[in-house]
Design a protein around this nucleic acid. Structure first.
Length: 351
DNA sequence: TCTGGGGTCCTAGGACCC
DNA sequence: TCTGGGGTCCTAGGACCC
C-alpha cells in the first residue's frame, strides 16, 4: 500500500493563492498575530531553515525569523484543498483511500510496479491541485507511513520487511510512528535505544512497563509489522470537544462559569448535529501557568440539552477557586451507532 | 520563551457486585 | 477471625497524532 503526504501542506495552500510568497519564509498560526498566545501550525521550508516548526509558540517563531510572513489559520481553505486531493486519490483506478488527516492518506492498490504507480499518483495530485506530495510504499501501513519520511520532499520511497531493519535499525525509537519522547525515554531506561533493539526484544518483557496492550504493540512497531489492509470505512467521531486558551488568565469564578457555558454550547451544537446521545463529559482545566486537571462524568444517554448542561455545571463545581485559569476544554463523548463500532479511527487504524 | 485545538486509545486504582 | 477471586464501571491522567 501507499501513504501519500502533502509537502508543507498549509504553507503550500497559502502560497498558491498568494504567489508572491513563493520562496519566502511563511509561518501560519493562530490569528496571525505573534503577540498573542498561539502556536505555529505549519512553516514553509524556508522558515524551517531557521529552526521553526509546528507546535512552537508563535512569538518565539517570529523572533527566530524576523522577516517571516505570518498568516492566520484558514481552516476552510485547507479543507477545500484537502477534499480536492482526496478526490484525486479516490479517482485512481482500483484505489481504496483511508484518510488520516487534512494532508495525508493511505492508498490501497494492486500495482505491478509500485514505484511507477506512486510517481503517477504524485503527478495526478500535482496536476489537479498544484500541490506537491511525497509517497511512501510499504507492505504494512506502518512501513508505508514511515517510508514517506524518507520520500520527502516530492519523492517516493519504499520500505518492506526486506529493508526495514537496514534502513530503520540504527535509528532511535522516537523515529517510529507512535513513539514519542516519553515512551522513547522509558524504553531507553530498559536498554532499548534503537529500532533494531526494539524489534529484537521479547514482547512479554515490555508488559510490566507498558501494560498488556501497549507493551507488545511497541515490540511489533519496532519490527514494522501490523495492519496490511487499507480500510475506507467512513470515520465516525467518538466525541467532540472545544478548547480555548485565554489571552488573559481568568481569575473571577463568574468568568470561568460563563466560559464553560459558552464552550458547552458550542460542543452541544456539534453533538446535536450528529444526532447521537451523549454518554460522557470531560472538563479540562489548565491552571496557570501549566498545570492541567481533568474532571470527568459519565451520564445516562441523553439528547437533552438541559441535562447535559446541568451535568457540565456539576463539573464546574470542582474547579479550584482562586487559581487563575488559562485554558478550558470541554469534551462530550457520544454513544456509538452499532454498525460503526468497528469503524476505523483516523490515526490508530494502521497500528 | 512559554507553550493551539481537534482527535484517539490505554492504564491504574477505587467502588461495587457476586 | 480474616479476607477468595473475578468481573464491571467510573474517574483521572497519560501519551500520541495531525
Amino acid at each position: 500500500m501507499l501513504h501519500v503526504d502533502l509537502d508543507q501542506f498549509i504553507a503550500a495552500v497559502e502560497v498558491l493563492r498568494r504567489p508572491e510568497l513563493a520562496g519566502k519564509p511563511v509561518i501560519v498560526g493562530g490569528r496571525g498575530d505573534p503577540t498573542e498566545r498561539a502556536v505555529v501550525s505549519t512553516a514553509s521550508y524556508e522558515a524551517r531553515a531557521f529552526g521553526v516548526g509546528s507546535g512552537m509558540p508563535l512569538r518565539i517563531a517570529a523572533r527566530k525569523v524576523p522577516d517571516a510572513v505570518i498568516l492566520p489559520v484558514d481552516h476552510e481553505a485547507y479543507l477545500e484543498a484537502s477534499e480536492a486531493v482526496m478526490a484525486t486519490l479516490r479517482a485512481q483506478p482500483g484505489a481504496t483511500v483511508q484518510v488520516l488527516g487534512w494532508d495525508e492518506a493511505f492508498v490501497g492498490v494492486e500495482a505491478g510496479d509500485p514505484e511507477a504507480y506512486a510517481r503517477r499518483l504524485r503527478e495526478a495530485v500535482l496536476e489537479n491541485t498544484r500541490l506537491s506530495s511525497s509517497v511512501g510504499i510499504g507492505d504494512t501501513l506502518v512501513r508505508a507511513k514511515v517510508a514517506t519520511g524518507f520520500a520527502k520532499p516530492a519523492g517516493v520511497f519504499r520500505l518492506t520487511e526486506g529493508n526495514w531493519l537496514e534502513v530503520m535499525g540504527e535509528r532511535p525509537t522516537i523515529d517510529l510512528w507512535g513513539v514519542g519522547p516519553k515512551v522513547s525515554r522509558r524504553l531507553a531506561a530498559h536498554g532499548i535505544v534503537t529500532v533494531a533493539q526494539l524489534a529484537a526484544c521479547n514482547p512479554a518483557d515490555l508488559v510490566p512497563e507498558f501494560g498488556p496492550k501497549m507493551g507488545p504493540w511497541y515490540a511489533q512497531l519496532g519490527r514494522g509489522d501490523g495492519e496490511t489492509v487499507v480500510d475506507d470505512t467512513p470515520w465516525v467521531a467518538r466525541g467532540h470537544s472545544r478548547e480555548t486558551t485565554y489571552q488573559q488568565d481568568l481569575t473571577a469564578p463568574a468568568q470561568v462559569d460563563d466560559a464553560v457555558r459558552e464552550l458547552v454550547a458550542r460542543v452541544l451544537e456539534d453533538v446535536i448535529a450528529e444526532g447521537r446521545p451523549v454518554v460522557g463529559l470531560t472538563l479540562k482545566v489548565r491552571y496557570a501557568p501549566f498545570f492541567t486537571k481533568t474532571y470527568a462524568k459519565r451520564i445516562p444517554e441523553t439528547f437533552d440539552r438541559e441535562v447535559v448542561l446541568d451535568r457540565a455545571l456539576e463539573l464546574v463545581g470542582k474547579i479550584e477557586q482562586g487559581r487563575p485559569v488559562r485554558l478550558l476544554g470541554f469534551r462530550a463523548e457520544m454513544s456509538m451507532p452499532e454498525e460503526a463500532r468497528k469503524g476505523h479511527t483516523p490515526t490508530r487504524s494502521g497500528w
